[in-house]
Nucleic acid binder design. Structure first.
Lengths: 141, 141
DNA sequence: GGTTACTGTAATAATATCAGTTACAGATGA
DNA sequence: TCATCTGTAACTGATATTATTACAGTAACC
């Protein structure tokens, strides 16, 4: 799995946890344990699909603009990591003179597409709101 | 996804396709499009879980020792790629003085464990026999 | 209007991961 | 005893990932 997915989810949960739903890339980066540039890149993507608003300039930053219960991990997955299951590498070669070697790539690809859908269905059930609840539950334990 | 998983599945399908169910690491490597050493490493693992027999020495190689319908991709996944969904990297830090930052790692981990199980269930439904059928179907089309 | 504090993005450098190669010991059949 | 094959380890090279630096653009605030 793409680690940008992790950064995105973590960032959204953090924003959901903030009273005003806001944070700067530097604050987020510190919380996630990475650098601000990476955060900005990921957040830029989340802005494009309408999950966060950004305000440039002094006092700016990112703001969650949906209810945490309305954002699923599947949304994030689709935006940042869809298709990442299949390894870049593909076995076999269509030009090959062997049934298996020449068709395995396609067949394997189909399998991974199915796996991707399966994963998406699973992520569909988990929202940013759930994640925040789990975090709070963990804290109390 | 681990690309060793791909190599393993491809190799097993190739063996299943062979009349005698046998091939050397070099033959497999050529079919998969990789090098024999990698194939041997993967096959060595498949031997340990009892899916193939190996014969060293002249005339040796690998032999499928289960019926193709009895080997599922989930078996292969468990042996070679279980837990590979979660990125090595983990966001946040338990020492952190923030509910989100300090607990996100655990929560995210739990999510990935669930995703892993989900994936395993999907792979449970696909056997090496199915893969071979699909390859043949593809060939006719 | 100038200063400060942000985002957006590109380019580069550092690092980690992955894949291919070489080498060689051990096994086995002819 | 020779040819052929697996099992591994060590090394090299390629590729992908992450961090850093740099700077233009934007907005608040004095």
């Amino acid at each position: 799995m793409n680690s940008e997915f992790v950064i995105a989810v973590h960032s959204l949960v953090l924003l959901a946890h903030r009273p005003e739903g806001m944070a700067t890339s530097e604050e987020i980066a510190e919380n996630v344990c990475t650098n601000p540039v990476r955060v900005r890149k990921v957040m830029s993507c989340l802005r494009k699909i309408g999950f966060v608003d950004t305000r440039e300039g002094a006092g700016g930053g990112y703001k969650l603009c949906r209810r945490p219960e309305d954002v699923t991990l599947a949304d994030v997955y689709r935006a940042l990591a869809a298709g990442s299951l299949a390894p870049g590498w593909c076995s076999g070669n269509p030009e090959m003179n062997c049934i298996v070697g020449s068709n395995m790539g396609d067949v394997m690809n189909a399998v991974f597409c199915g796996a991707d859908r399966q994963l998406e269905m699973y992520f569909e059930q988990i929202t940013i709101g759930h994640m925040l609840s789990r975090v709070k539950a963990k804290q109390q334990a």
